[in-house]
Design a protein around this nucleic acid. Sequence first.
DNA 1: ACAAAAGTGTTGAGTGTACACCCATGG
DNA 2: CCATGGGTGTACACTCAACACTTTTGT
Lengths: 210, 210
Amino acid sequence: VISVAVVVVIFTVRDESLDVLLIHRGAAPYEGMLALPGGLLLDGQHLDDAAVSRLQVETGVTDVYLEQLYTFDTPGNLERPAVPVTYFALVNAASVRLSSRSEWQAAWFPVRRMPELAFGNAAVVEYALERLQAKLAYTNVVYSLLPERFTLSQLQRVYETIVGKRLDKRNFRKRMLSLDIIRETEATLKEGAHRPARLYEFRSRAPERI
Amino acid sequence: VISVAVVVVIFTVRDESLDVLLIHRGAAPYEGMLALPGGLLLDGQHLDDAAVSRLQVETGVTDVYLEQLYTFDTPGNLERPAVPVTYFALVNAASVRLSSRSEWQAAWFPVRRMPELAFGNAAVVEYALERLQAKLAYTNVVYSLLPERFTLSQLQRVYETIVGKRLDKRNFRKRMLSLDIIRETEATLKEGAHRPARLYEFRSRAPERI
DNA sequence: ACAAAAGTGTTGAGTGTACACCCATGG
DNA sequence: CCATGGGTGTACACTCAACACTTTTGT
């Protein structure tokens, strides 16, 4: 019998860099290499719950965007074969507490300069990135990368970091507003910045039901 | 440990109806009910291979459009829990030989009038239909529903059957040609029909690599 | 002759993209 | 006073949807 592994690609945006959370493997196979966080699905556990709790363990974060990505065909470990069901998540770097005490030393790595990964995990990251970029265009995925209220410029910086290129400011604003996933907060301004600015919020801070 | 089940939603278009292949369950659980064809993933077997061979067993068909759909969270059978990895496939009804001798009595059922299904399979069929309809718009999924060469009217009938509504002939033609997934076959006409007609073919009769 | 399928263009609405300047504030 | 970031409008290209009649052939 083949069992099931749950693997999570956790993205964040820090400064102007799109990063992925990786752990150091402390045991064979691939001891000493970097890998995506994951583990075997336990008896009676639900897939989504396993993904959520894996995320919680690694980052302390909950209530973020989390979506199933794909189920791969490569039974990672050959001695104890398990089919990897992969997820991807987006978390706000500011609200993360990496469990530094843990033996597997989770840390952020820039997605554009991925190191070599165990279990053929490189393909998973690549696929997750594609999906993330595609979903940007028509969903509210990034809601968990931003504070509750934000300026359009902040939002644009996040988008630019993810797609990896500059966007036109006026077109970006028009598109965001017409997409109808964000809303202007009433007469609210902001101080501490260079100049007063309108604040916006997402109409919904939950992933749409698949 | 939880194991893996592979489940396949096999679509075909017959006359003007979009149908799904179902089997009669011959044993508990859900004995006597209808269900999607599927089975446990065996040791050392690859997911995609399992889906292909399941399809082959049920229909005798190979080399058709087959794509992974989703991995559900409902461990169907509660005594022997297994995570269902689902696939969907499109087959040409004409080239199918249903294994009538088999004990589980595979048969076609119209997707618009699905009977009640075992294992909560109704959600799987629904999701597969959505995905199929979405993929129609920009891919060559239907290539395995048609003979190698076909008229634009035949192609349009297939599209109409899948989306469940009538399409405008002129707009349909323009769109298909501009999508660049089909090609006019050189000066070929057709006889036996009501009138001579141009024949077209797909530029590629293989699913694009994910 | 008539039923059945193949073929063929134009217009209008809406959407996406390119592009440049002014203003308020903090230092 | 100047550097930084916020805010704003227009013109063109393109895409999508609506719409009706003629031709050929088999019966």
